[in-house]
Design a binder for these strands. Sequence first.
RNA 1: GUGCCUGUAGCUCAGCUGGAUAGAGCAACGGACUUCUAAUCCGUAGGUCGGGGGUUCGAAUCCCUCCAGGCACGCCA
Length: 569
Amino acid sequence: MITNQVNNIVELIQQQIKDIVEKSIKVAEQKGELPQIEIPEIVIEKPREQQYGEFSTNVAMQITKQAKQPPRKIAEIIIGNAATEGTYVEKIDCAGPGFINFYLNNQWLYDSLKLITEMKEQYGEITIGKGTKVMVEFVSANPTGPLHMGNARGGALGDCIASVLEKAGYDVTREFYVNDAGNQIQKFGISLEARYIQQLKGEDAILFPEDGYQGEDIIEHAKAYIAEYGDALLLKESEERRSILAQYALPKNIERIRDGLQQYGISYDVWFSEKSLYDSKEVERTISELKEKGYTVESEDAIWLNGEKLGLEKNEVLVRNNGFPTYMAADIAYHRDKFVGRKFDWVINLWGADHHGHVGRMKAAMIPFGIEPDKLQVVLFQLVRLYRNGEIARMSKRTGKSISLTDLLDEVGKDAARFFFNMKASGSHLDFDLDLAVKQSNENPVFYVQYAHARICSMLAKLEEEGIPMPEVSKVDLSLLKEKEELELIKKLAELPEEIRISASTLEPSRLTRYVMDVAGGFHSFYSACSVKNAEEELRMARIELAMCTKTVIRNVLSILKISSPERM
RNA sequence: GUGCCUGUAGCUCAGCUGGAUAGAGCAACGGACUUCUAAUCCGUAGGUCGGGGGUUCGAAUCCCUCCAGGCACGCCA
């Protein structure tokens, strides 16, 4: 049944079932048992209850009106005409109000194990992306200070979304947009200047701007500059002084951000500079194009994006009355470049939920350039609350400052951080329990999963030590695996490609985190119910094969999440 | 005030393109280590799916309304 084309057995079976149903309906039409039916999209689902088989469909209920017969009757007719030869389907019956339930023979499970053994680290890879060029832009933190918890969640989410899309066959580019131009860089310079003067001439020498960056890191930059270059800037014009200080500190901050993300397991394909959009006149060009196409209005000495024409609630300023473009203008130019300049077919942005107001505007702003707005997709994630000792934690234990990504990594480590941020759907609020993340106990799901992997490794090592030969899949009789725990575990393993498919299409890698917890649980149950070492030789071989496949699946999922798979714990 | 997100077991969350008796982990309680790692396993208990209305053969899921929490409504980004 396995061919090189098949990499998702669950999908294959669902297709088989759809074919069975469609053909059966056609046959029934010919026999006159059913009138001509416009067959709807056949939905195959997994029944909650084991007793209802592996898959079920509700077509009989969907076509009740067309068939002019009660659903159970229709189901009986479909079952009566179903041809299951050459498929994994063993039995079909009808239950409840008219569900058609499909029971499979175990061969699909054994074939899945063979598939895992053949594909190894590639198991789980599918081709639904068909090489589509997709960009995932995430974190894109302001380089005016350290990375915070929002960046940490966005980083874990964005990176894992990118990985999942790669597994699903997309051509993925990870990008960081560096906001190295515009207002906040001005503010950065003003803040640095104030700290610089305060360092040299005392706290009261200059009033620190109310909307300046308050962080300690600004003071540290000022001190570092003075240590390196002294007080010569005091003699310069303010504007030049600010610019020099900003240009001094900015690269340092970007470097720190890069290092922090590297520690976190994230590396980007592209670091895209906002400033480059000004330097290349791309912002200007974008604004004139909007103007030419009639999407702008001018009033109060400013140039506005015509919101009404784009179905928006209000107009948005593109060029201020002082002649400087807004962030919005630069962002439109940036996204135009993603599609028009760099030819991405699909662009995914990860933004904190506080930016949700910006989503509709940006998508609409693509229309003037002939870009389908839905090609720009924004994944919003809710913000993070840290808990320590059962209370909201705002400050770092070590530094006393607000908790940065680096602090988090120091405190809980990369594995726990990435696991926890990917445990919940992006849209749900996240309470991050710092105590739990480092707890080495069964309360901590990271350890639960990693322990399953370590347990397999150690078991296999022990068997090898005792001189027990490792199996060759072609010689193993997998059909010996028929204990409940064995079958449950294999079923889980067989679902990986389907889990990847769903995670990719919903952009929810959290699904995989929960999946790998299930796999680990399945293994632990198998482990305590079925002895490998003490099984009769043939069975032992099959069980070793199952354990090795489990190891492969856990590794593959953890590697998507960029979490380590320890061999011993 | 307007818009968006969230509300499911004691806690943290799945399920939400409508389907069969609403699921999982943790916590609680009771069991299992002379046996391949007990960082584990097995079992028990736990629910007005925020409230109320509606649509439907059927609603946690769709519509309306109210309540609670978060966020956004800048010539900030």
